[in-house]
Every structure is written in structure tokens, then in C-alpha cells.
Write a protein that binds this DNA or RNA. Structure first.
Lengths: 213, 213
DNA sequence: GTCTATATGAAGATAGAC
DNA sequence: GTCTATCTTCATATAGAC
């Protein structure tokens, strides 16, 4: 507590070791199949130490999930400012970043964990949604509103369009990945290109060159 | 699920009673939090009887999930033949049926269960996918190929278009519902109309009137 | 096949020394 | 705060009678 920051080698901080171990095991085996013994062993501490920092297995799970949500939240920020780009290029950039994010093992396992324990931790559903998919949706919506203000796209319900653009990108890739059926990476480019073409065709005010293909 | 009646009160079939009880409890509490004692009690049989029919809790879970997949599989069939309809109307019909299906409590809880226990039962992911989302995708793809053959839509990758159409319908509704954030039902019509307009605009060979609304 | 009763073991949580 | 050792509960699975 008192010594929070070390300028050099960061504090091993048992509580963080425990959290890291819990994260790894919850992700790998799920909540039910992960024991506090296993977490303590992996963290290299005793079980009593685990309980000194987290009052129960559920509290540890909640702490793990919320930290993970914060991390995903940070990773979900758009990689660069796409405001200046042409519409198709901006959408393509967004699309690639989005698919990479939602298909990452980190995101998928977190989603699985939260969905799995939703009966036990209902509030985690909202926390996760606001951290990841809701946040991305808000970003894209904001971009579309800006694009509309700049005359790149016509009048539309930007929230709905953003949701459908992200949905078209998802296709069935996300649910397949969620179910453990990993998609061929080669498909990703085709998916993004087609989704971009789809939305440019419908919403773009000026179609600079041609539709997608 | 309340009454499976036989014409002759012959077989209440304990194995089915057990399966029904297991289904209800797994859905309500998940795999980990459901005990064999509870299942036996709910089915009105002894625990030994449960084990006489299902070798283990895992086997019972697998049997429950697979039966549920078969049921969802049947419900997922398109409600009517849309082949004769105009494109926009056919897509609209498909869209409403699809959203109703994926947002149903039955489908969501099953998806949650399968995702939750994926580490323990990896093969259930594929079974569920083929039963529900994969099956719907195949139906829509088949419809699109027929529509293409009839000249309603131009040349395209029907599998990809089907996936993106269903994805646009999903938007973030499915993931929200999965996370326990139930959407306003009023939105559904707007979502379907906009998605139909989107795909008609891009793919229809003849645009009869205008997009959806 | 079905029951009552029980063995077995795992896992969440704690006591008390240091 | 951290450890070793232990307590307690409870769920899976089985034994044996009918």
C-alpha cells in the first residue's frame, strides 16, 4: 500500500500476481473449473494470501473481469484518427481494427467468461458491454456523425448505421469464434472490402471512384 | 415443455423426465451451479436413476444440449417459403424471423450455456453452430443463390452476402441480449427495414420502388 | 430399473504461528 | 501479510436391497 511505485523493477505486488494467475486460469478453464488452490499455486503464494486480498472466489472473479474490461476498453480505441481519410478508407481502417479486436483471444475469452457467469454476476454484462462493443459503437457513430456533418454521407440514423456496419463486419465470424470455430484469416480482407462497399454504396454522397469491387 | 403427453399414458420415460429437469436447471443456473441432486429431485426420481440413464453429469449435459440444439434447429427453419416474394419482402420476412429466433430466451440461454462450457465440451460449439446460426446462414445463402438464378440480384458471393445481411440484422442486438441487456422491441422493425434497404440498394438488379422506408 | 444410504474426494474458506 | 495445516461442506458417483 505505502510503497506503490518503484521506479525500476515494478512491484511484484502479490495482489497483482494473484490477479494475473486468476486471469490466466479463468480464461483457460472458466470459472467453475478453476480452483482457488490452482490460482494460489500459479501465483506462487498460499491460498490464505489469496483470501487476504480477495474475500471470495466470486470477488476475485469480479476483480479479474473488471480489470480485463478496462484493458479491452483501452485496446478498443481506434488505432488512428480516420477523420481526414476518404470515406471508404476510413471505414476500411475501422473495419480491420474492429475485426482484429473482436476476434482476439483476449476479447473472446472475456466475452465467454462474462456470458457464462451472467446469472451469477448480472452487472458484469453491462460493464463489459460498455467497455468493448458499446464503446466501439459509440466511436463509429461519432465518426459517422462527423462524416455527415462534413457532407461525406447523407442524412441517416448514425447509431443504427454504425451498428449495422459493425454487424456486417461481424457476419458470423464472431459467433463462430465464440464457439471455438476459428475463421480463416484470409477471409478478413474480403469481409471488410465487401462491407465497406455495401455501406459506401448506400450512404456515401459522393462515390469517388467505384464501389468496392 | 409442460406436458409431453402420450396417447396412452404409457411412457413418462424417466430418462426424458431427467432430461427435462436437467434442461430447466442447466438453463437457469448453468452447468457448474446445478447439482445432480437437484436434477434428480426436480425429475422426481432418485439420483441413482439419473446415473442409470446418464453415465455422468457431463454426459447428461451433453445430451441435454444436443437435444436442445435439435429443437432450435427445427425452430430455425424459415417460417414460410419466400421464394415467390419480391426481394425486399423476402428479405424482410427472413429478417424478422431471424431476429425473433436469435433473441429468444431459448436461443440465448443455450448459446450462453454452450459458450460457458466450451472449455469442457469443445465439440458442442460446432454442434450448436451447425444447428442454429450455420443452418440459418445456409438457408439464406440458398435463397440468395436462387434469387441470383432468377435474376433478382446480380453476381455476388452469396455466402458472404448472406453472412453480412444476417450480421447487419444482428447489429449489436445479439451481443447485448447475450449480455443481459434486452433491447427495446420497437427497434426491431427499424433494424429490419434499414438492413433490407441496405442490401436491396447494393445487390438488387431491379430496384422496384425505393429502399424499405 | 429403481430406490435408500453411503463412500470419496475436491474445493471454498479459516485458524493460528511467524 | 504471509505461511502451513486444517475444517467443513457438498456434490459426484456407487453399493446393495427390492
Amino acid at each position: 500500500m505505502s510503497e506503490r511505485d518503484n521506479t525500476e523493477a515494478e512491484t511484484p505486488a502479490k495482489s497483482v500476481l494473484v490477479l494475473d494467475a486468476a486471469r490466466a486460469l479463468f480464461i483457460e478453464h472458466g470459472f467453475g473449473a478453476t480452483s482457488m488452490d490452482a490460482i494460489a499455486a500459479r501465483a506462487g503464494v498460499s491460498k490464505a494470501t489469496v483470501y487476504a486480498h480477495y474475500a471470495s472466489k466470486q470477488a476475485l472473479f469480479a476483480a479479474t473481469t473488471q480489470r480485463e474490461c478496462r484493458r479491452v476498453h483501452e485496446r478498443m480505441a481506434l488505432p488512428q484518427d480516420v477523420t481526414g481519410l476518404p470515406l471508404a478508407q476510413a471505414l476500411s481502417t475501422i473495419g480491420h481494427a474492429f475485426l482484429q479486436a473482436i476476434l482476439s483471444a483476449q476479447n473472446l475469452t472475456l466475452l465467454r467468461m462474462v456470458a457464462a457467469e451472467l446469472p451469477r454476476f448480472p452487472e458484469l454484462g453491462t460493464i463489459f458491454y460498455d467497455s468493448a462493443p458499446g464503446r466501439t459503437l459509440a466511436s463509429v457513430r461519432a465518426y459517422l456523425e462527423q462524416a455527415r456533418a462534413h457532407g461525406l454521407i447523407g442524412d441517416c440514423d448514425c447509431a443504427l448505421v454504425a451498428a449495422q456496419f459493425l454487424g456486417a463486419l461481424r457476419g458470423d465470424l464472431q459467433i463462430r469464434a465464440l464457439l471455438g470455430i476459428t475463421p480463416a484469416v484470409a477471409d478478413i480482407d474480403a469481409v471488410v472490402d465487401e462491407a465497406v462497399a455495401l455501406f459506401v454504396t448506400r450512404y456515401a454522397v459522393v462515390t469517388p471512384a467505384e464501389g468496392g469491387r
